[in-house]
Every structure is written in structure tokens, then in C-alpha cells.
Design a protein around this nucleic acid. Sequence first.
DNA 1: CTACCGTAACTGGTATACCGAATACCAAGC
DNA 2: GCTTGGTATTCGGTATACCAGTTACGGTAG
Lengths: 232, 232
Amino acid sequence: MSPRTTADRPNMGDAHRSLRDQAYVELRERIIEGQYPAGHRLVEREIAEELGVSRIPVREAMQRLETEGFVAIQPRKGAVVADFGPEDARHFFAVRESLEALAAGLAATHASDAELRALERIVERSRRAAEAGRLREAVALNADFHQQIVDMSGNPLLKDLMTPLDGRLRRLFRLTSTPEDGAAMCGEHERLYAAIASRDAEQAAELARRHVVGTHENALGMLAPDTAAENR
Amino acid sequence: MSPRTTADRPNMGDAHRSLRDQAYVELRERIIEGQYPAGHRLVEREIAEELGVSRIPVREAMQRLETEGFVAIQPRKGAVVADFGPEDARHFFAVRESLEALAAGLAATHASDAELRALERIVERSRRAAEAGRLREAVALNADFHQQIVDMSGNPLLKDLMTPLDGRLRRLFRLTSTPEDGAAMCGEHERLYAAIASRDAEQAAELARRHVVGTHENALGMLAPDTAAENR
DNA sequence: CTACCGTAACTGGTATACCGAATACCAAGC
DNA sequence: GCTTGGTATTCGGTATACCAGTTACGGTAG
């Protein structure tokens, strides 16, 4: 039924993965983390040597990173880390708004009871983390929350489109995570959860939309001052 | 600003493209065309020899085809042509509905006058083709129409997400193109164009939604009898 | 001093070769 | 006759090697 395997594979403990996936995860993390700033050249031989592998896995990893928008490959010239300014963020959130709304609506329609309970657990843990000031954990649970909704949508294509976008979101959130809106985020999540649990697709979609828009405005506000200045 | 190049490259006259892109286009076409039926094994060496290239370009092309959902790669086992049954079509159209609506709404907001004129030309040619019974041309112009709207949205990320989906649509439409709904399609296109031209984002989005849903029901109706029986 | 051209180093694109995992087939034992 | 173990073959994963386009530097001529 679902032919896709891409999005699932390159997770897990790096151990006995293919070298390509290891290289992919490693490079992706470095870009998200900011270790490779925007515009930084990615030279195949350099990276291959550093990772202790040959060029082929590195090359294939970079091609995949290109399709996901993390690097830009110019033919016969090389790959550079893709820029991600306010303009890109705008486009990003516009797409994300549509897809999150779709996911939330579908989730409200199709979710099983077990899935709803799982979502509820995430919301509860998220609230506890936010109240205890565990910001890191709250951010991680935020990601889990959205991912769970996408899973619950029952649409594997939607999942395949959303998963790569999560990386960009993390890249954007690297510095734009504030303590005070952890509580606000939690409230929105709880309302969204309630809408899904009560099978109200319309409201779920609408709440998801607003939630993304709110996140967008928040992130954009913190991003405004300068777009790509710091490196490490 | 827009770091992406992927979607643009592998078009054009196959001539002085990289072998990887040539292989990608060729394989993709064979899958869409139905020359390779669903479930068919894609053996790297075979294809490489047949195309007269080494395995690396073939391999890279197949990986890309995997991310776009045309083939399923099982690690250490090989690649097979991905299935695309009614269930997949459902998921496909759900996503497409959201994204087309987003594109239409953005296009209504951002389109330049020149772009609007280009869109109008496409609509006119489409109508003439439909009236003259030139079905092939009408289908091609249909694709142009939607692509033009996506371009007009001014959102490169949206374009990058939509472009690969077009291939799946073509694959689905391989046998589901009927003469009588050419006229209906034209009418919907004209109304959608009118909404965009009058800068009515709300209505443009709504019309796009309905248009996709209509296409979906139509295609699904013709797909229902059997899902994957014919091969050549 | 500057502008242009040629050459050399670099880097991505591709081919060939090797290795290990997965599978299928065959033979031997129950 | 059926099952099971082992072996041979196939095919994907990776490494190494070669080639071609690009860029950068330096020398020479104006």
C-alpha cells in the first residue's frame, strides 16, 4: 500500500545504517545546527575524508539534501549550504500552514482511539515540561506532537512531504525558541487536541492554521534583525 | 533567494544533460508511460547496460525516483516500481487539493499582469483545443495551466513540492482522459482564471479545491474496475 | 600598471572493480 | 516426499581511479 521508505530510514542510532544515510544524517545535523553556515561550500572529497568514507555516499547524501532544500548544487561547480532568510521562511510557513491544516483535519476524521490517547500523552508531557521550564524537552515534544498528527492523518504522502520540512523548521528554530511562549504553545496544542479528539475536522484544521501562523509571526519577529550573520 | 534548482534541470532536450538526469528522465517516463508496470524490478546493472552508462548515474536517478514516489527501494534488495492504486490516488488528491488551493490563492494575490495574460492565453488555447477535439493538446495545456498558477504563486517551495506530483498525475491520467469532460475542465479553468484575474484569493482557492476534487472523482471512477492489471 | 591569455590545480562527473548481504537452488538427511 | 542445510549466484553498497569542465593564479604584452 505505502511504497515509501525514505522518510523512515535515516533515523535511529546511526549504528548499522548505510554509509549514505549516516552521511545524510550527519551533514543535515551540521547544517541545522549551524555548524555549516549558509553559503558554506561542501567539497565532496573533504567531507568524505573527514567521515572516513568514499565520495559516493557523501555525494548521494548531498543530492538528497538538495531535494530537501538544505544545499544548492550547481552543476560542475559544487554544493553550498542553502540560504534560509525571512523570505524563505515566509514561503515555508505558507506551505506548512496548508499541510498542517490538512493533516489536522484528516487526523480528526481518521484517528484511532489508541492514536488519540498517544496524542493526549504527548500534550500532557508537553505541559508538564513547559511548566517545569524544561524548554529543550518542550521543543522536542512540540515536534512529536506535530509528527503524531501527521501520522494520524493516515496519509503517507503527506507524511513524506512534511517530514523533510521538519528539518527546516528545526534549522529556523535554532535560535528562536523562547520560554514564555512555551505556555502559549501548550494551550494551542491542547485546543487542537481537543478538536481532533472530538472529531471536529473543520475546527482542527482552522486551529492548526492559526497555530502555524502564530509560530510564523513569532519566529519571523526574532529572525528579523539579521538573516545570516552568525556562524558557529 | 531561491536555492532550488532540482525541479528545473531534468527537462529540455536530453542533449547535454548529466547522465544522471538523462537516466532520471528516461526511467521516469517509462514508469509513467506504463512500460515498467507496478512491481517491476529495476536492476541497476541491466538498466545501466541498456542505457549505455555505468551504474552510478542509474543509481542516483533511482534514488531520486524514490523520493518522488515512483520506485520503492528496499535496502540490500533492490528497487521496484511503486504501486499506485486507488488508495494512493486518494492520498495524492488530498494533498494536491490543499496545495492547488494554496497556489491559486497566492496567485490571485501576487500575480503580475504579464503572468495573468500568459494564463489567459493558456486558457484560450485550451478552449480551442477542447472544441477542436484535440485531446492530447488539451491535456498538455491543462498541465501548463496548473503549472503556470504554481509559478504565479511566487512560492518556490510550493513549486518544488508540486512539480514532482505532476508526474504521478500524468501516470494516473495515462488511461483516464475522456473527451467529454475536456469541456467541463475548460469551464472550470475559465472560472478559476477569472477569480485569479479579479484578485479574489478566497474564491480562487475554493474553485481550485473543487476542481481537484472533481478531477479526483472522475479519475477514481475510471480507475475503479481494476488497479494494476495491464502492463504494456 | 593593467588587462588578457595560458596553464595548473581543483572539483565534480563517470567508469570500473571489489565486497558483503540476500536469495535461490540443489543436495543430503529425516 | 518433504524439509533443511549449505553453496553458488545475483545484486546492491562502497572504494578507487580516471576524465572533463571550472576556476584561480601568474606571467607577459600593451
